[in-house]
Design a protein around this nucleic acid. Sequence first.
DNA 1: AATATTATATGAACCGTTTCATTTAATGAA
DNA 2: TTCATTAAATGAAACGGTTCATATAATATT
Lengths: 334, 334
Amino acid sequence: MVTIKDIAKKAGVSVGTVSNVLNNVETVRKDITEKVQKTIRELGYKPSRIASGLSRKVTKNIGLVIPDVASPFYSDLIKGITNKLTEYNYEVFLCNSNNDAEKEKNIISNLESLWVDGIIIVPVYSKYRNNDFLNNPDTQIVILNRDLEDINKDIILFNNYDGAYKATKLLIENKHNNIICLTGPKISQSASNRFAGWKKAMEEINNFKKAYSFWGKFTVESGYEMMKDAFGKIDSIDAVFAASDFLALGAIKAIKEKSLLIPQDISIIGFGDIYLCKYLDPSLTTINRPFRLIGEKSVEILLQRINGKKSEYKKIIIDGEIVNRSTVFKNTNG
Amino acid sequence: MVTIKDIAKKAGVSVGTVSNVLNNVETVRKDITEKVQKTIRELGYKPSRIASGLSRKVTKNIGLVIPDVASPFYSDLIKGITNKLTEYNYEVFLCNSNNDAEKEKNIISNLESLWVDGIIIVPVYSKYRNNDFLNNPDTQIVILNRDLEDINKDIILFNNYDGAYKATKLLIENKHNNIICLTGPKISQSASNRFAGWKKAMEEINNFKKAYSFWGKFTVESGYEMMKDAFGKIDSIDAVFAASDFLALGAIKAIKEKSLLIPQDISIIGFGDIYLCKYLDPSLTTINRPFRLIGEKSVEILLQRINGKKSEYKKIIIDGEIVNRSTVFKNTNG
DNA sequence: AATATTATATGAACCGTTTCATTTAATGAA
DNA sequence: TTCATTAAATGAAACGGTTCATATAATATT
């Protein structure tokens, strides 16, 4: 292994000078710079980021903690964050918390041992979280997608309420009235906020009925079951707001089994815009979550903090938009 | 920041002893061990993996290099590898080469600077690759999914040939004869090997025709175009072997546009088993690639090398299996 | 030519661990 | 009690960089 000392000796200069060349310090004479660079090339020298990290206490590494790295929800987020960080010459530790709060805690501790310069985390769902371990003032953290309590960090949220409201409004504008809501577990903030957005829009047309809302899990199976349940209880459903694309998928299956046509007999809108939506038949109208944008925003904020920004921690809320495809019946005039 | 020296001083022992406690060295007396551990807890001490890495020259970090981290092809692979490595107390640097050979080279160099203990890489497609940078004998590397030339490393491949052969055989067993093959670009080994598997099966029933094979890109659009092209040129197609699920998706669109029924009028089988296959309507019969298995295998092999295994580098080839769903017409008797 | 000023190079101390030769303490044998 | 043996603790050197006070070389001024 060739070290900075080898370069110094071979080039006939001091290690300090080699270090200066490596870090583009201005004061090195041009001919010396060239000689050192030549020697570096000749010996194939690669500075150790471990040694540099120890000495500088800055590693240029970032931790990224995700509840499920294989989930299509997060793939764009991971890509956005990784690419943006790479642009700024940071490396990223990808950590999978596997939806396990205990594991998440260990991961943070580990990342701190690794002296990462910062952490971006999508925290795990969990009703009774103790979030102290995220509050270490010496660790720069940006929190995504979960509105945790008692947190002294920057938080970036997706506007679930607004998205659900927009989705329901779209159905209403196209002359649907009996719009049911299929959502996730009550414990989930996303599920509750999307429910609330639907509720608001329904109240505006004086047609909010609690019985029109169904709480399940964010899975295809649950969507299927809830839709069948709804058909059994309500017989005038003309549209479905599904609080996740997977729920919509399950609901579509149940709708097809009843030989109803989408969107002629019943409209449906999903939530999330996972990448398969556009490949479905019919392709699914949905609300997109601009995860790439969220990823880039989170990097931007984190790097500002790392570079010493001291302002108040803030909460940023990012809106999604309707992605118009083929599952909402068009009926705007009349 | 609290260091090992602070612990040593507070506990009234030497730093060597604290280090021994941290690393569970047997020779430390029990009462001393406890006193040190208590002090560690009291001061909230966290050993620096940077310092430890410098001293030991072992970082317990692994680099994972993927051409597109958001691609559904790799999501299971990334998860499998990450989880397995975490089990063995390794952290993983996730690096996105963005299908760019130049970037890939930089990533490897970077990972070497980071003193990772090993690298798992899915190399980028590229016709004229120079693979020297992967041959550094001081860097432990396992190569996935691409059969690179002149490489002195372990390689794990998916058996594209066998998968395509099995897929085509399935169609043949169900009484299809005029089976066309939609595949990717000629530059791609996967595309060529899948073509070859199809060809072999077709030769076995004396029905291989070059005109029945179509070379495009591994995209939905390309699948659609090739299928339309095929319909224009051949009028007795009774089945399609699509060398990727995306190609199948495009082909299905073209088939539906001709008002043909799947699988009654025409059968189709995909390749890859990306997670949307089961949600399609009809759900897509395909060949799965056991990426989780491949991921775990690659970790196993890499860790053996890291732990000093010296045997010959080998090539491991892993077979996929048919995933029977709804796009192949069942007609085995008669 | 002597001195002041500026530009550049030096090298030792330091970052937080591990390691191991050496010292010290504890135990056993005579 | 003394010496030999074993068990445990010590602390300085090393890992590969960075940093900065100091030394030296180069240039400018008188």
